[in-house]
Design a protein around this nucleic acid. Sequence first.
DNA 1: TTGTACATACTATTTAGTATGGTATAACCC
DNA 2: GGGTTATACCATACTAAATAGTATGTACAA
Lengths: 189, 189
Amino acid sequence: MVNMKNIKRRLGKEQWAAHGLKMLGQIGVGSLRIDDLCRHLKVTKGSFYWHFKSRTEFLNAVLEHWKQTATFDIIDRIEAKGGLPQDKILALFDESNSGVVDFSAEQAIRHWAKTKKQAAQAVLYIDDQRMKFLIPQFRALGFSKSEAETRTRLLYSLIISEAIIYQKEKPANRRRRQRQCFDAIVFPA
Amino acid sequence: MVNMKNIKRRLGKEQWAAHGLKMLGQIGVGSLRIDDLCRHLKVTKGSFYWHFKSRTEFLNAVLEHWKQTATFDIIDRIEAKGGLPQDKILALFDESNSGVVDFSAEQAIRHWAKTKKQAAQAVLYIDDQRMKFLIPQFRALGFSKSEAETRTRLLYSLIISEAIIYQKEKPANRRRRQRQCFDAIVFPA
DNA sequence: TTGTACATACTATTTAGTATGGTATAACCC
DNA sequence: GGGTTATACCATACTAAATAGTATGTACAA
């Protein structure tokens, strides 16, 4: 009888990057210690420095992993599912606030971008990609070019800040409030 | 003849806190080193540990300083100036994006709040204070209670994310786009 | 001359990075 | 299948530098 659960999985670069991104969201770049990361993954530094030649190289890998999982993967999923423009917009809004994507990490990266050029470039690029996805949806709803850009910006601002502004509301109230904000942007009176 | 400029100014707690807040915005909590701070202020650790008994105590002072300067002082200025509701709303929006207030620090603090309870409480409290200031302005413009809350939230989201989303636009374009977003929230068709 | 503000010199701990040896696993051959 | 080997993955033990905090002496204003 083979016990699949107790097979000691060895780690690949991607799993390191994924855990790095998770920790980034919890404690930030400046506090991210290699020792802590290793302890968290139940390995030692010998493993870390086999995969990455330095802390910096590791952080770059984490950044790449964020670009992939927090943007490209999401857009791909939504496009694959299809649907009406308003459905796609809502899907992006929902998925951004569902906890599937780790926005804490994004928050850390956005601040990291203040000092790290590569992070700044990544953030600029990702913002552009997401808005490039949203604008055509609004246009398909009948908004003018200018209006579509404005509403895209409003919605994107809402998405970002929903993840950043702390909530003490009950989930039900929050969803209702979010829905009102969403409607005010997507379906103006 | 007294040379005022060459008088070696000795530091007080507030100046330490102010510089701490500035550095916080640049590099984040995790990277904030006492040695760096001292070098930046052209003093040594002897000075630091005279004012604060530990790094933690210092960070708490920085947090208090942020609460005062980034919220209370702003609201006081706007209320002192007076004007119509839409003027007050615009004033808050403008001052938040003018660079007078250091939003980088706020960004750092908001992420810091993930791990530091006191920071989390401060952020919750400050968000509440700011929105409590905005809601009556919207009500005075004729919006219903529910509508005023929704539009407050939309505007506050815009303010927060304007400071967080990176800009590659020219200042003129940015102001125009901001104005469009602002109008869509405050003066819906 | 008293108390505030700072310098200097030190300690203990933490941390990034290295050197080296060991172990698991897939691939290959028989 | 069983044995061998190469390679990917990890442990252990170390070094050098950075860093929080302390102890103590000093300058300066009121």
